[in-house]
Design a protein around this nucleic acid. Structure first.
Lengths: 191, 191
DNA sequence: GTCCTTATGTCAGTCACTGACATATAGGCT
DNA sequence: AGCCTATATGTCAGTGACTGACATAAGGAC
């Protein structure tokens, strides 16, 4: 009955997404997810630290790619640009997963508990970005600031891309970057 | 036995903070908190939606003050400055509560579940800021971006203030704002 | 085949949290 | 005073997330 373990893991993720879409997150029990995946509740909690986590797999790989992207940025660029380089490195990853992340996003948006976890994951990414910046010699406090600002820019780009998927993510990113620069150096404007 | 209800609420918050400091968040049960406050577990959950929430009271008032600060900003200022005006409006509130928020912050930092809730509360503040900006005529997407960036600046200021409480929060704020402007318009720099 | 590792099942238990119902108390009304 | 209503609380039973301890089965190395 026990083969690779990764099979069960994937079945659990699929079953969870299905059930969350069908009945909603709160009305789905871990035991039900496990049953649909053909395993027991205990196995569910061996694969995932808690019920929320079943929707947040692969965030570690994402974080590492992001940090690698920052590390790979040209030595002489400013911190914010380095962060945006990091995000550039994960664009492909994101654009490839759109079909899966769309329903996932809908589920997350419907359950406060999942939104909380998403925010925690995002904070983890910011932390990783800041750490990568520090390795480039950026002062810790400024590194966190740059990482958070970069994250905000990326969020803006993501939202735009969700609304207009026909335009490339990279395009949305540079558009958001432009908005940031306008915001930051427009003391005396307004539409 | 039932007087104002607010008494019990305050006792619960005090008991929770004490116990979390003594034994840690995870090793403290809601029943224990209730017992120390002289009420039952059921009463605890009548006052607070869940165990985490006992440490996050008053965030609603904070959010409203923040939004009011944005609304009260001069009509002609740019979005980011309006957000910083909002934060300026809560400075006094924060500086006054330092004695209480220091141990609270320590507890939160020690428990992942509490950090998650804190992030959720911060996201709520950003949402309120963005909504306030929209009421000033700022386009929704840009409003969220400005709110997040402003929040990042304020976080930076808060960290600085925690480390150097002898300097006023306002001073840290304008310092952080300077760092942001440097970050956003320094394509071609680096220390 | 034996042995070891790993994925899983089983079971009992703790604790967060909820709904339903009973009770007590403060304060207003007559 | 006596009554009445709203509100804070107590009591109790129940669900579901999550954990620790122990048993078992399957795959690979020898």
């Amino acid at each position: 009955m026990a083969r690779s373990g990764d099979d069960a893991r994937r079945r659990l993720q699929g079953a969870a997404l299905e059930l969350f879409l069908e009945r909603g997150y709160d009305d789905t029990t871990a035991a039900e997810i496990a049953a649909r995946a053909g395993v027991t509740e205990r196995t569910f909690f061996r694969h995932f630290k808690d019920k929320r986590e079943v929707l947040f797999d692969g965030e570690e790989a994402f974080r590492e790619t992001l940090a690698a992207g920052v590390a790979a940025a040209p030595v002489d660029v400013d911190p914010l640009s380095a962060v945006l380089c990091g995000y550039g490195a994960v664009e492909a990853m994101i654009e490839a997963n759109r079909a899966f992340s769309e329903p996932r996003h809908r589920v997350i948006a419907s359950a406060p508990a999942l939104q909380e976890r998403m925010l925690a994951k995002a904070a983890g990414l910011v932390e990783a970005l800041a750490a990568a910046l520090q390795r480039r010699g950026v002062e810790p406090g400024v590194a966190v600031l740059a990482a958070q600002v970069g994250s905000a820019v990326f969020n803006r780009a993501l939202d735009g891309w969700m609304a207009q998927p026909e335009t490339r993510l990279a395009e949305h990113l540079s558009r958001a970057e432009g908005e940031l620069r306008w915001l930051a150096l427009a003391p005396r404007d307004q539409a």
